[in-house]
């Protein structure tokens, strides 16, 4: 069942990419085929990894951080 949903998802993505081919590009990045697909995926991965790295290195502290003196 789960595989079926992912299959549908893939089909929808392919259709949207096909529709995209018919559109003219308004910005330089829209000339790259499937740019937004890549952008959504890579952007999400980058945000997670960068945030987590910042959190580990610098920002995250124990919950009582401000209570102990």
């Amino acid at each position: 069942m789960k595989k079926f949903w992912w299959f549908l998802f893939g089909c929808a993505a392919l259709i949207s990419l096909a529709v995209e081919m018919t559109q003219e590009a308004h910005h330089w990045w829209e000339k790259i085929p499937g740019f937004y697909v890549f952008f959504g995926f890579a952007g999400c991965v980058a945000i997670i990894l960068i945030s987590k790295a910042l959190g580990k290195l610098l920002l995250q502290k124990k919950e009582d951080y401000y209570d102990v003196r």
């Binding site: 929808a12 993505a13 949207s16 990419l17 937004y36 952008f39 959504g40 997670i48 919950e63």
Partner: peptide, 23 residues
């Protein structure tokens, strides 16, 4: 397209996103 593939990335990395009891 953007949120659809944001979802894909989230699904793959969701283990990493689980919160931690920190501030």
């Amino acid at each position: 397209q953007i949120p659809a593939f944001t979802f894909v990335a989230f699904w793959m990395l969701r283990g990493k996103l689980a919160g931690s009891p920190t501030i």
